[in-house]
Simulated scan of single mutants.
Amino acid sequence: MRELTAEEVAEVLAHNGIGVLALYDGTRPYAIPMSFGYDGSEAVFAVQFGSGESSRKRDCLDVSTEASFTVYEEPEQGRWRSVVLSGELVEVPEAETDAAFAALATNAEFAPDTSVWGVPLDEVTFTLYRLDIDDCEGREFSMGH
């Protein structure tokens, strides 16, 4: 196992559009797969939430805005790379939404069905969030090395 360089961390984030977002509801962790965008700048790392009237993600954010986000890949058989980002998940201000949408357009992978667990699309709200990164760790593991 070895630590990734800053350039390798940026490469993992730029070449993947899905990760696992981990939040905390005050009792236990809540981790979900989440599409994300990254354009090479920590300031515009953006996660888009879609939810109906009730949302476990929003309930967690009411308890704590601290979050971690894990992105991982297997670039070749027997070799894995992962990046774990930690920080505060904050709503993107209106003045920064164009940059956040541009980050999402860069590499986010969206599900083809935009309905949220059976909630009609006209009842779903989408809010942009960014992760203000306090800590970033990247590692690589290879079989036999």
Rank of each mutant, 00 (worst) to 15 (best):
M143G: 11
E96H: 14
G26Y: 01
A67Y: 00
D113W: 04
V116N: 05
F141S: 14
L4A: 00
A99M: 07
A22Q: 08
L104Y: 02
S86P: 07
P112N: 11
L85S: 05
T65H: 15
D134M: 01
D39H: 09
V84F: 00
E140F: 02
F45W: 02
T5R: 04
H15C: 12
S41P: 02
L128Y: 12
G87S: 02
A100N: 11
V63L: 00
G87P: 06
A14C: 06
S82E: 14
V90A: 08
P93N: 14
A108D: 08
M34Q: 01
G144R: 14
N107S: 10
E74D: 06
L21N: 01
G19D: 01
A6S: 13
S68F: 03
V92R: 09
R130S: 12
C60L: 04
P93V: 14
C136Y: 06
A99V: 06
V124T: 06
K57D: 02
Y72F: 11
R58M: 15
E123S: 06
K57A: 06
R28A: 15
R58G: 03
E140L: 08
M143P: 06
I133C: 04
V12T: 04
V119M: 02
Y129H: 08
P33L: 06
V119Q: 02
G52S: 03
